[in-house]
Write a protein that binds this DNA or RNA. Structure first.
Lengths: 218, 218
DNA sequence: TGTACATCAGTGAACGCGCGTTCACTGATGTAC
DNA sequence: TGTACATCAGTGAACGCGCGTTCACTGATGTAC
C-alpha cells in the first residue's frame, strides 16, 4: 500500500507530472496521446479504445467518462488536427508577407510539413467519414478557408482580365499538397524511390503551376 | 434433398453460370468479387475473410484453399488494380496519338476514371503496405512506367535546353491525379462541396501545369 | 477550521460478438489401367 | 467403356482472442454549512 507516497495533489491542470492515484487527473489528454501513438505506429486500424486505455494505465471502461465511444475519440483527433493545421497555415501565410507569392509558397510547404510532423493527426483527418461530424467539418472548412483567402489575395495581383478563379486555385493547391503527402509522406510506406525530397517535389510543382497561371517570382 | 436438380457440371471455366454443388467451381474469383464489394461498400476495414466467404456462399475455412491468409486476398486485389490501371493508362496514352500533348492529358483523365470506376481496387492499392509485396510492387512499377515513358515523349517535344526532368513530370502528374482522386472521388465521402466535377478540376490543373512547363496546345 | 454529503472519475468483472485460423473429415473430379 | 484410386476443393465444428460496451460499484474531490 503506497498511498501517501506521491500524493502530489497537483490539482486541476498538471499534465506531465503523473500523479497516478485512483483519479488519473488528465485522462482525456492521455487517451488522445495514446490514440495518436497507436495511429502513428500501426495505422488508423491499429487504434483501439481498449489499447488506448491500456496505454493510459486505466481500465477499459474509463474512457467512457470522456468520450461517447471509440469514434468520438477518433473524431476529436481529427478535429484537433484541422485546428492545428489552420494555425500552421495562418502562420505560414503571415498575411501575405513578405510578398504574396512567397507567402503562398510557404503555405504549401507548411501543409506538407504538417502532414509529416503530425502523421497521426493527418491520417485521422482523412480517414473514415469523420468529416461528416459537424465539429470536424467546421474545423476542416476553417483550415481550407485560409487557403482560399490566400489564393484570393494572390489572384488579385494579376491584371483584371487574367485572373483565375481563386477557389479553383485553392483546390489545386490542396490537391498538390495532399497528393504529395499521401503518396510520399505516409507513416510506414515509402511508395516509390523518390529522386528528391517530397518537399522539393511539391515546391517544384507549385512553381510550375503558378508560372502556368502567369505568376512570376517577385 | 435437391441433388440432381442442377448438376449442370459446367466444368472448368464457366464463371457466371453458378453450378453450386459441393465444389464451387470458381471460388477464387467469387472471393475476389466479394472482397471488392465489401471494400467499395464499407471501406477497406469493412472487408473480412469470413464475410467474403459468406457472400461467396461457402464455409469460413474454404478461402484458405485459395489464399494463404486474409492479407493475401487483399494484396491480390491491389495487384490486379495496378494491372488494370496499367492497361487503362496504356490505352489512353495510345502511343502518343493523335499528338503527345492531347494523349498526355488523356492519361490524366484515365487515371481519375480508374479511381472512380474501380473504387475497391483503388482503395486496396493505396491502403496498407501491400506495395511491399513483390508482386504488387512490380505491378505498381509497371503502371507508373507508362506515365514516365509518356512524360519522356512529351518532354522531347521541347527545345533541348528547356526540358524538365521527365521523372519529375511523371511524379507531378501522379500527385495531381492521386490527390484529386483521394480528396474528391473516394467512395463514401464528398470531402467538400466542389463547384465543378473532379475530372474538370484535374484537367484544369493539368493544363495550367503543362503551360507552366512551356507546353502549348498543338 | 471541521464535518456531511453530492458529485465525479475511476474500477473490475462480465457480456456478446465476430474475427482469423486449424483440424479431421468427406464429397466430387479426373486419371490410369 | 468401366472400375480403383489419388487428388482436390469443399465442410462444419471448434479454438482463442481482443474488441466495444455495460453495469453496479467505490475511492477521491470539492463544496456548503
Amino acid at each position: 500500500m503506497s498511498w501517501g507516497k506521491d500524493h502530489d495533489g497537483s490539482g486541476s491542470g498538471g499534465a506531465g507530472s503523473g500523479g497516478r492515484g485512483y483519479h488519473h487527473g488528465n485522462l482525456r489528454e492521455a487517451l488522445i496521446d495514446a490514440a495518436m501513438s497507436l495511429i502513428a505506429e500501426l495505422g488508423p486500424s491499429g487504434f483501439t479504445f481498449a489499447e488506448a486505455a491500456r496505454r493510459a494505465g486505466v481500465s477499459p471502461a474509463a474512457p467512457y467518462r470522456h468520450f461517447r465511444d471509440r469514434d468520438a475519440l477518433m473524431a476529436e483527433v481529427a478535429r484537433r488536427g484541422f485546428e492545428i493545421l489552420e494555425i500552421a497555415l495562418t502562420k505560414a501565410w503571415n498575411d501575405g508577407r513578405p510578398d504574396v507569392f512567397t507567402a503562398f509558397e510557404a503555405l504549401g510547404r507548411a501543409y506538407l510539413d504538417f502532414a509529416r510532423l503530425e502523421p497521426a493527426h493527418y491520417v485521422a483527418m482523412f480517414e473514415a467519414d469523420f468529416q461528416r461530424t459537424p465539429e470536424v467539418k467546421q474545423a476542416g472548412d476553417r483550415a481550407f478557408e485560409v487557403l482560399r483567402a490566400a489564393a484570393e489575395r494572390l489572384v488579385a495581383t494579376l491584371p483584371a482580365g487574367k485572373r483565375p478563379p481563386a477557389l479553383m486555385m485553392a483546390l489545386h493547391v490542396w490537391v498538390l499538397a495532399h497528393g504529395t503527402a499521401d503518396l510520399f509522406c505516409r507513416p510506414g510506406n515509402r511508395r516509390h524511390a523518390l529522386p528528391m525530397e517530397p518537399g522539393d517535389l511539391l515546391e517544384a510543382a507549385f512553381l510550375v503551376y503558378l508560372q502556368g497561371l502567369g505568376f512570376h517570382r517577385p
